[in-house]
Design a protein around this nucleic acid. Structure first.
Lengths: 147, 147
DNA sequence: TACCTATTGGACCTTTTTTGTCTTTTTATA
DNA sequence: TATAAAAAGACAAAAAAGGTCCAATAGGTA
């Protein structure tokens, strides 16, 4: 239930790949796709979406490729996920914010609102830079486990 | 992104309808469907799923119908949602809990784990009885808004 | 200019999931 | 037995997910 799509997963992998490259270096679609294990043509679409959002910048022609448009320390996981999957909305009734035909006064909406707020808060609290680091220092370092 | 399906919405409406009935009273599919604004045959499937889970009990034949199997004060929103939509799993990698082919050491999984934990915690903190009450007392009463 | 390289955009396609319907069977009551 | 209801299962349309393919465009390079 409430799963991130493959597209979203691929998008995160691709962003992390870009974040791990030396600043300014351009990566090719094929290169990213190979390393991140994502179908090439599909990744192409995802990267296009990122460039439209302004998270990634692209350059055409010989020597072209993709690179992060901003400092990974300033990009949050929320931005990445929302760029690809759209706004975090666990319940359709939240779309209109009160535009719920039936049961306008019921409390279910308020509960989903809290769910959304928490998701947003958690995802906005993690930067791509933090995620891209990892590798060494293995587990539970810096980010507290809430459970 | 990460939307509850219509099935899930319908399920909640149906459960709330049942929770608002006098204890012991049986409701017919058609009756619930009409009141909750849910296609009758579809609701039938949802109710069957609920009876399989044990949340709702059903009785066949003349005078039959559906009723909550347990006290609504003891049923959480989490139970209702999971009965219909399956376990809350915002990221596929959480299914196997560590069975992630690639990037086993990356921190993304830990973040989604926290998201799931929070969702579960919020949904488990709301009972059907609370939700079914509402109506009078309008807003923000008893349940704190976190935002 | 011609040619190569790489992204862009759009059309298209397949598979899966969602959102149902319809029919038959089972169980219970009158 | 007739009637009333849920249960079960097959079926189907519509939408979303998950891709593919190709022509166009933009930028280098000889």
């Amino acid at each position: 239930m409430m799963e991130l799509t493959r597209k979203g997963e691929y998008a995160i992998r691709a962003i992390l790949y870009l974040a791990r490259q030396p600043t300014g270096r351009l990566s090719l679609v094929g290169e990213i796709a190979g390393s991140a294990g994502v179908p090439r043509t599909f990744l192409s679409k995802i990267l296009q979406q990122f460039t439209r959002t302004g998270l990634v910048s692209s350059f055409r022609g010989t020597g072209g490729g993709f690179t992060l448009a901003r400092d990974p320390a300033g990009i949050t996981l929320l931005e990445v996920v929302e760029a690809i999957e759209g706004p975090v909305l666990p319940n359709r009734c939240l779309v209109g914010e009160g535009t719920c035909e039936r049961d306008g006064t019921c409390r279910v909406h308020e509960v989903w609102g809290r769910v959304r707020d928490e998701m947003v808060s958690i995802l906005a609290g993690v930067t791509i830079e933090e995620l891209a680091r990892a590798r060494e220092g293995s587990a539970g370092d810096g980010l507290a486990k809430s459970s």
